[in-house]
C-alpha cells in the first residue's frame, strides 16, 4: 500500500487564528484551537498581535512598537517582549514548535 502523508490541515498557525476584542485598557483573546479565553492588558495584547505578525515576517516590530509608543529603551523593549513571548508560549497562544 502506498504511504500517504496525513494532510496537514491541523497545522495551522495559532496566531493567525487568534481573535482579539479590545475593551479600553483590556483585551480578551480567544484561541479557537484550544477554546481558551484570556484577559490581557491591552498593551500586552498589542504586542501579542505584533509577535504573531512578526512570526510571519518582521520580528522586530514588537520591539520597535514598544520603543516608539512606550518610550522604552531597546534593552527594555527586548526584555519586555521576550518575557511576554515566554508567557504566551506557556498559555498556548504562540506555538512552541517555532523555536
Amino acid at each position: 500500500m502506498p504511504l500517504r502523508v496525513i494532510a496537514s490541515t491541523q497545522q495551522k498557525n495559532i496566531p493567525s487564528l487568534l481573535v482579539f476584542r479590545f475593551w479600553g485598557e483590556e483585551c480578551v483573546v480567544y484561541n479557537p484551537l484550544s477554546g481558551d479565553t484570556h484577559l490581557l492588558p491591552a498593551l500586552h495584547a498589542e504586542i501579542l498581535q505584533l509577535i504573531t505578525e512578526g512570526i510571519r515576517g518582521d520580528s522586530d516590530r514588537p520591539i520597535d512598537h514598544l520603543m516608539a509608543e512606550y518610550a522604552m529603551s531597546y534593552e527594555e523593549a527586548v526584555e519586555f517582549s521576550s518575557a511576554l513571548y515566554k508567557n504566551y508560549k506557556s498559555l498556548g497562544l504562540v506555538d512552541p514548535s517555532w523555536n
Binding site: 500500500m1 504511504l3 500517504r4 502523508v5 496525513i6 494532510a7 496537514s8 497545522q11
Partner: peptide, 8 residues
C-alpha cells in the same frame, strides 16, 4: 507501515 504526519 504507519503513516507519518506532515511537518510533525
Amino acid at each position: 507501515l504507519a503513516i507519518p504526519a506532515e511537518d510533525m
